[in-house]
Structures are given as C-alpha cells and as structure tokens.
C-alpha cells in the first residue's frame, strides 16, 4: 500500500526521480536563504526579486529560445541589476530599501513585458512562469545542484556576519567593513536561488519554497540552527508530498508542492509551540531562570 503510493512512482519513473532530486536541491539551497530573508524582515523582497528575474529570463528566451543557459543568464543579469541598483540607491540616497526595490522591479517587469510583446509572445513562456519539474534534463539538474552547493557553502562562510547584519546591523557596521559585502552577497544568493528555482517551480512558485518553510519553522524553533533545520525538513516533506499528489491526482506539480508547504505553514501557525495560536492562548508555567 505504502509502497505503491509512495515508493513506486519514483521506482518506476525516471522523471519522478529527477523531479525529486531537483526539489531536494532547491530545498537545500533556497530554504536557508529564505530563513535569513524572513529574519531580516525581507520576505517580500524575495517576491519582488522573482518579478525582477522574470523579464530577464524572458529576454533570454526570445534571444536563444528555450535554452537553459540563456534564460539563466538573462534572469541572473536582471535580478542582479535590480538588487545592486536598489541597494545602491538605498545606501546613497534618502529612499528606503522597500521603495527603491519596488521601483526597480516594477521598471524591470514593465520593460520585460514590453520586450516580449513587441517580439511576439509564446506559450512556452509558461515554462518560465510555472516551471517544469517533471521534465528536468541533466543540464538543469546539474545547474540546480550546483546552485544548492554554492549557496550552502557561501552561507556557511558568511554565517556570522549575516547573523549580525540581520540582528544588529549598526553594530556590524561599527566593528567591521563587511556589512555592505554581506548584504550584497546575500542578495546575490537570493537571485541565484530564484533563478535555479524557476527551472523547477517557475519564477513565482520558487519564492514559495523559499519563504513558506521558513515561516512555518518560526513556529517550531527558537534558534537559527533549529530554524534552518526545520525549514529544510518542511521543504523536503512538501516536495515529496507535492510530487506524489501531482502524480496520483494529475495536479500541476509546482502549485501542488507550494500548497503542501502552505498547509504545513497553516498547521504550524495553529499548533506550533513557539508562538503558535494554541501556545498563545493556553496558560503556561512561567520560565524558571
């Protein structure tokens, strides 16, 4: 029974195994990045960046067709340009980060739509929007795994400055010059993971696997390590269940994965011991020092 429902789809079909591997890679790379996005109160930045990437990928598609390389490079360029320019505007002028980011991603999005419409639209662009996790080829898998490895490595190296930059940026600026470097490296990781994620889940769904597991983890863990661990576990679980649901009930896989993550989030919101609804309502014994 369990064999048929859970194992057999992966045992029988190569595309399911590839999809699972792709999702695991995305979960490993994007989810810890999402945890830091959440801790920096930048969850919506992920969404803005995803919009910023879309036109870049679309331009890549128009220039070279459905090519992994062109679309990845296009997305990276558009994403990095928006991240750098909005960061620069924030640091140099009086405009705050949310407003400058919003300005740049809207410009980028409008530009992208304009370019696409003048060159004639194509249904294959649905690939960019909603991803093709069930049709990942070798090159795409290698790209996803490389991005995950790079992310984990950079996060490990950057861990301490990043925690300080999130918790007390003023202090980091007073003791070291790493603040700006940390900030931009982190934004690059966001872009990199979104670009990787769009091959599997589509640009908009890729933000989901970044933010939803992190938001769910907030209700279970009280330390940064704990948050990352729980978030990755939630992302794995959502990927596996989402893929199986889409297999058994012929649902589109990207939305199925994100919706499972959404359900886990909703359950955490209610049941989570760290500030969940029930924990807030129930009287608790005061902490002993």
């Amino acid at each position: 029974m369990i064999w048929e429902a859970v194992i057999q789809p992966f045992a029988d079909f190569g595309f399911m195994r590839r999809a699972l591997l792709g999702c695991i890679a995305v979960s490993l790379g994007a989810t810890p990045v999402g945890v830091f996005l959440m801790l920096r109160r930048m969850s919506l930045t992920g969404d803005a960046m995803a919009h910023a990437i879309l036109p870049g990928a679309a331009v890549g598609f128009l220039v070279a067709g459905l090519s992994l390389g062109a679309m990845t490079i296009g997305g990276l360029i558009a994403g990095m340009a928006v991240a750098l320019l909005s960061g620069l505007v924030t640091r140099v002028t009086a405009l705050r980060e949310d407003a400058s980011l919003a300005a740049f991603y809207l410009i980028s999005l409008a530009l992208g739509v304009l370019i696409v419409s003048t060159r004639g639209s194509n249904v294959d662009l649905m690939h960019v929007l909603f991803g093709t996790v069930l049709a990942l080829n070798d090159a795409a898998l290698i790209l996803l795994c490389s991005i995950a490895s790079i992310s984990v490595l950079i996060l490990a190296v950057l861990f301490r400055p990043l925690v300080l930059e999130c918790a007390d940026p003023q202090f980091l600026r007073s003791v070291s010059r790493l603040s700006a470097v940390t900030h931009f490296t982190f934004l690059s990781l966001v872009v990199l993971n979104l670009v990787g994620g769009f091959h599997a889940l589509g640009t908009l769904m890729a933000v989901g696997i970044m933010i939803l597991p992190a938001a769910a983890a907030r209700f279970w863990a009280n330390s940064i390590g704990g948050l990352i661990f729980v978030a990755i576990a939630v992302a794995f679980l959502s990927s596996l269940s989402g893929l199986l649901l889409s297999y058994h009930y012929s649902l589109p896989s990207g939305p199925a994965i994100i919706l499972v993550a959404g359900i886990v989030y909703a359950v955490s919101l209610v049941l989570g011991p760290a500030g969940g609804l029930i924990a807030q309502v129930l009287p608790r014994r005061p902490l002993q020092n």
Binding site: L39, R41, V157, L158, R160, P161, V163, L164, C166, A167, D168, P169, Q170, F171, V175, S176, L178, A221, N222, S223, I224, G226, L227
Partner: peptide, 30 residues
C-alpha cells in the same frame, strides 16, 4: 552604544550570543 540600538529583539539570539558579539575584533567573522 547608540541610544536606540536597532537590535531586532524578536531575532532568535540568546544572551550569550549577543554578548559574544563583543569579541568580534578578536575572532572576526570566521
């Protein structure tokens, strides 16, 4: 020590983590 330090009090740090930041000059980022 700024007047209104912009420390995010909801950030998951313990007292030890916060105080240990003071050693930055000695142990740096790594």
């Amino acid at each position: 020590l700024p007047q209104q330090s912009d420390i995010d009090r909801s950030f998951p740090l313990s007292v030890v983590d916060l105080v240990a930041m003071g050693l930055w000059r000695e142990i740096g980022p790594f």
